[in-house]
Computed example of a mutant assay.
Amino acid sequence: MIPLSTVIFDVMKKDLRFRLVFLVDEEGMLLREFLHSKGISKRTLTATKYEGGHLTVNGHEQNVRHRLQLGDEVAIIFPPEQPSEGLHPEDGPLDIVYEDEAILILNKPPGQSTIPSRDHPGGTVANYVAGKFVRDGLPATVHVVTRLDKDTSGLICIAKNRHIHHLLSEQMVSSGFHRQYVAIVEGWVKENCFTIEQPIGRKDGSIIERMVREDGQFARTDVEVQHHFEKEGHALTRIALVLHTGRTHQIRVHLQWAGYPLAGDDLYGGTEHWIGRQALHCATLSFRHPLTGADIQFDSDMPADMQNISRIR
């Protein structure tokens, strides 16, 4: 593997800043108005102007008050991005499901944190992605669109640019971004399909735990039963879940509230007798591609430790 220090020198030799190119299909618009119609925010334009980006029309740099003509070619070259001080690029394995110039889809194993923290400053998905960007010569930082808890496995979406992150975040707000999980819970879930709509907030006296509470944030989780089974005389249920909101520990808190804690989730009422981590896996991500508008979907099989629980009756 190429040392990071070797590649950092190489980055300076070529311009791999993220860029978008558009053809003008309407006469007389201001450049600012045209770019806003393409989803470029005012904040992004400001950053482009003052942080090392460029706006060009037919190859010539222009300001946002430039009036466009039909057929003009508009390019926005986004400014280079730097990782935050707490994010150090590292060499490490990444299970890449899909990658293009805008997004990176990864399959995260259980036991790995998504982003650095005081307890886990290195070895995270973000550290390894930052290292990959350096090796690839990309002047970009890591924008985590969908984050998973350390012991939750499955699909994660990373944006390669803050504009792409902005577009995907808007999809999440408008319910255009779908996340489906599979889980194994303790107990025999009686209803085949139901929705949990309960507000979630921080548990008093804890900086980690959340709970259902009236003054919490709105949260909605759809639940569908896939399979009932028994292990050592104990009832267990495999379920599929769809998140409509993204509150911290949402699935874990909602299932505890419903009386069906995740197997292995000792923080929220489960037992580690069958599995040493919460039996939760992000199995599907589906959304519109932020550049092409095409509907795309990615799937990930349930990992071996969760499959092993289902096999033993």
Rank of each mutant, 00 (worst) to 15 (best):
L23P: 02
A294W: 04
V144H: 03
I251Y: 04
N63W: 06
A235E: 15
T248G: 00
S175C: 00
Q171R: 08
R252F: 02
F133G: 05
G137P: 06
L68R: 06
I200E: 00
K14W: 08
L30G: 13
G59N: 11
M302D: 09
R238I: 10
T284R: 15
L285S: 07
K13T: 14
V144L: 09
L16F: 10
R202C: 08
P139L: 05
G276Y: 08
M12V: 14
L148H: 04
S117D: 00
M211A: 14
T44G: 05
G264V: 12
D301N: 14
A75K: 09
I164S: 05
I8A: 15
R313S: 11
G28R: 08
D295K: 13
A263H: 07
V97D: 08
W274P: 08
S117A: 05
I296T: 13
P80Q: 11
A304F: 08
P290H: 00
L31G: 02
S174D: 15
I105G: 04
G176Y: 01
A47T: 05
E272G: 04
I158V: 15
Y98Q: 12
N192W: 09
A294L: 14
F287T: 12
L23S: 12
G246D: 00
C157Y: 02
R313C: 08
R311G: 04
G123C: 01
H36F: 10
R313V: 00
S174M: 10
M12A: 15
R220H: 05
R238T: 12
A258V: 10
G293Q: 12
P121I: 07
